[in-house]
Nucleic acid binder design. Structure first.
Length: 479
RNA sequence: GCCGGGGUGGUCGAGAGGCGAGGCGGCGGGCUGCAGACCCGCUUCACGUGGGUUCAAAUCCCACCCCCGGCUCCA
């Protein structure tokens, strides 16, 4: 266990030493997807960040209890459901399933709970009832129930927004819903014709929950009234998280969240990602273009989470190649059989571990940690060039790499993907044929066979110890 | 308008007063029949512009320009 971790808390706008409420245990709420479409790579940047956070807390010995909500009822979903005339559940299941598939492809660790909004309606009703009783909520003319932000003194403490300074956007319907203040927000939305078959009959009336209430309810239900960490994308700071604080703290009188963490957005080619700009990508889009999801993961995690990340295809290629470098290194370690380096290597290993940990402790500085790791790899490669590293030492280095990979989550999974099975007879014969050609110095035939195998995804490398082969994705056509 | 975050080499990106992180790409060299992997060198007077502080500024201060975001559903 360590209390060395420092995290940037949006509440204070500074890095703070992290200590959980209960020793050894961290309660973590991560804002999840609204399942109305396939998630895009911007969404995944946040989920990858949350995964790194979770993994680092675990690395430091904490037991993490993570909740990720599934928002399966909202305006967009209702609109689609009524358009396609299918049951809500059927529609949301489709995208929920896709979401979990994507998480797995990106090697994102599972949370302990994935509560769905629609399965917590009664809990939401109870919380709203409590807010009404305490005088924080009121019913508007048309039956919807709103939170009265003027009753909550600390409103704006997360986003640092003063409500008097808020400029009403064009789409803020002021009197339309019978709200007392345009910034009061809906806890419960009364049924409307446009909602069609989507509604719940409750003691609050016929309708559906507002957007913010589900997170407060589900967070507190699974994690208690005060949670250690709550995270999401920066766009959620206001109004979503601000409203969550208001609802939760008004209801319980206790601090809702101790550390708020927000990840910056991703841009594509220096621009905001938008369907209208034609630069909108889902994970599936990238896989269809031949990129590996692990390269996407590597790219997403390699930029510090509080920094905007500029997604480009060139950067994705770079990530793909950086990943190859890691894998080549791992393979090379398998073949080391030198006399042994001894003390200097021990020192190198100790140094890389210490510095890696220091940087991760410092607000999850993965970028710097990776730089340190790659420097280490170069040093070890130098030693292996001189055939100094012994088998036992190589084994220790591999263990160290897997230790880092507990956080990065790319090496082991990629190794499994490219695992060497038995070569087919056809390929074995081709390799043998090429060896014969090489003995006869028939380079033309040898090179032809090598190229043919490459097209089949088998890379051959001639080494002093004989021919080596490895499985790699066949070359993709250029885009 | 109000409130945030930024502008670093071919590219992606760390760093936040004093040795040019790292990845990727390109070029050259070593190794190799050739490749590949790996190593070395170069790509490098790198830090938006103009001032200022300092022995020393990418880093601190001031002004300006530009980009992205929040204020409206959003990761």
């Amino acid at each position: 266990m360590s209390n060395k971790i420092h995290l940037f808390n949006t509440l204070s706008r500074r890095k703070e030493p992290f200590t959980p409420l209960k020793e050894g245990k961290v309660t973590l709420y991560t804002c999840g997807p609204t399942v109305y479409d396939f998630a895009h790579i911007g969404n995944f940047r946040t989920y990858v960040f949350q995964d790194i956070l979770r993994r680092w807390l675990e690395y430091r010995g904490y037991k993490v209890i993570q909740v990720m909500n599934i928002t399966d009822v909202d305006d967009k979903i209702i609109a689609s459901v009524n358009r396609e005339k299918i049951p809500l559940k059927e529609y949301t299941k489709r995208y929920e399933r896709a979401f979990f598939e994507d998480l797995e492809a990106l090697n994102i660790e599972k949370a302990e709970y994935y509560p769905r909004a629609t399965e917590h309606i009664s809990d939401m009703v109870a919380l709203i009832q409590k807010l009404i009783e305490k005088g924080y909520a009121y019913r508007g003319d048309e039956g919807s129930i709103y939170f009265d932000i003027s009753k909550f003194r600390e409103y704006g403490k997360l986003s640092k927004i003063k409500t008097e300074q808020l400029r009403p956007g064009a789409r803020v319907k002021t009197n339309h819903y019978g709200k007392e203040s345009p910034y009061d927000f809906a806890l419960w939305k009364a049924w409307d014709k446009a909602d069609g078959a989507v509604f719940w009959e409750t003691s609050l009336g016929k309708g559906r929950p507002g957007w913010h209430i589900e997170c407060s309810v589900m967070a507190m239900k699974y994690l208690g009234e005060t949670l250690d960490i709550h995270s999401g994308g920066v766009d959620l700071i206001f109004p979503h998280h601000e409203n969550e604080i208001a609802q939760s703290e008004a209801a319980t009188g206790k601090p809702f969240v101790r550390y708020w963490l927000h990840s910056e957005h991703l841009q594509v080619e220096g621009q905001r990602m938008a369907k209208s700009l034609g630069n909108y990508y889902t994970l599936r889009d990238l896989i269809a273009k031949g990129y590996s999801p692990l390269a996407v993961r590597f790219l997403l995690l390699s930029t510090h989470y509080r920094q905007q990340l500029n997604f480009t295809f060139q950067a994705l290629e770079a990530a793909e190649n950086a990943l190859k470098r890691l894998l080549n290194f791992m393979e090379r370690l398998d073949e080391a059989d030198g006399a042994g380096v001894g003390e200097p290597l021990k020192k190198l290993m100790h140094e890389v571990l210490t510095k890696f940990e220091e940087n991760m402790d410092d607000d999850l500085n993965v970028t710097e940690a990776l730089a340190i790791l790659f420097n280490f790899i170069r040093e070890v490669n130098k030693l292996m060039d001189k055939n100094k590293v012994s088998q036992a030492e190589a084994k220790e280095i591999r263990q160290l790499m897997y230790k880092f990979d507990k956080i990065l989550g790319v090496i082991e999974k990629a190794e499994k993907l490219f695992e060497k099975g038995k070569l087919s007879r056809e390929i074995q014969e081709l390799i043998e044929k090429r060896e014969e050609a090489r003995k006869l110095k028939d380079w033309k035939t040898a090179d032809e066979i090598r190229e043919k195998l490459r097209q089949m995804g088998i890379i051959l490398e001639d080494t002093p110890k004989g021919v080596k082969w490895k499985i790699r994705r066949p070359p993709e056509p250029e885009f």
